[in-house]
């Protein structure tokens, strides 16, 4: 498995420090037993209503794409970033493909278990985005406003 991390608008191969992972259900069943865990793996059908209490203390959250067509983790990542202000790493696992990594970064993912080489050119394929998302990219409408104000 290869790991890419996203920072400063670039994807770079990262050293795979061993993670001490725990699944959300196991963690909730017995927090004591998993006190040393550093990464929380959340299945993509888990309800996130009260996840905020679980997040603190984990430096990594792992979200899953069982197939690239199953897009639930995009919503989960945004909720974890935008609603619960989680600032640790959000890692994408599973069917992580070149042509989806841009969407993932926009939703707040910043680490990718990615088999197939470099994906930086895929990130550069679009200069603008219409909507605000977890990546804090200036949406087109805001750029239009600033431009109109400057004119």
């Amino acid at each position: 498995m290869k790991l890419l991390k996203f920072s400063g608008n670039l994807l770079a191969p990262a050293l795979e420090e061993p993670l001490s992972e725990v699944m959300l259900d196991d963690w909730r069943a017995n927090r004591q037993a998993h006190a040393g865990a550093t990464a929380l793996a959340i299945p993509n059908d888990a309800s996130l209503g009260d996840i905020v209490e679980d997040l603190s203390g984990f430096s990594t959250v792992i979200l899953t794409f069982p197939t690239f067509k199953d897009g639930r983790a995009y919503s989960q990542a945004r909720i974890i970033r935008e609603r619960f202000f989680y600032t640790g790493e959000i890692r994408a696992r599973g069917d992580v493909l070149r042509d989806q990594i841009l969407f993932m970064t926009r939703c707040g993912f910043d680490a990718f278990e990615f088999e197939s080489g470099d994906a930086n050119d895929a990130l550069g394929e679009f200069s603008f985005a219409y909507q605000a998302s977890a990546d804090r990219v200036e949406p087109v409408w805001r750029q239009r406003l600033s431009r109109a104000a400057a004119a």
Partner: peptide, 13 residues
């Protein structure tokens, strides 16, 4: 149209 174009969260519904 603009909001939904390449919406990062809703492209794999």
């Amino acid at each position: 149209r603009q909001w939904s174009t390449f919406h990062p969260e809703f492209s794999f519904l």
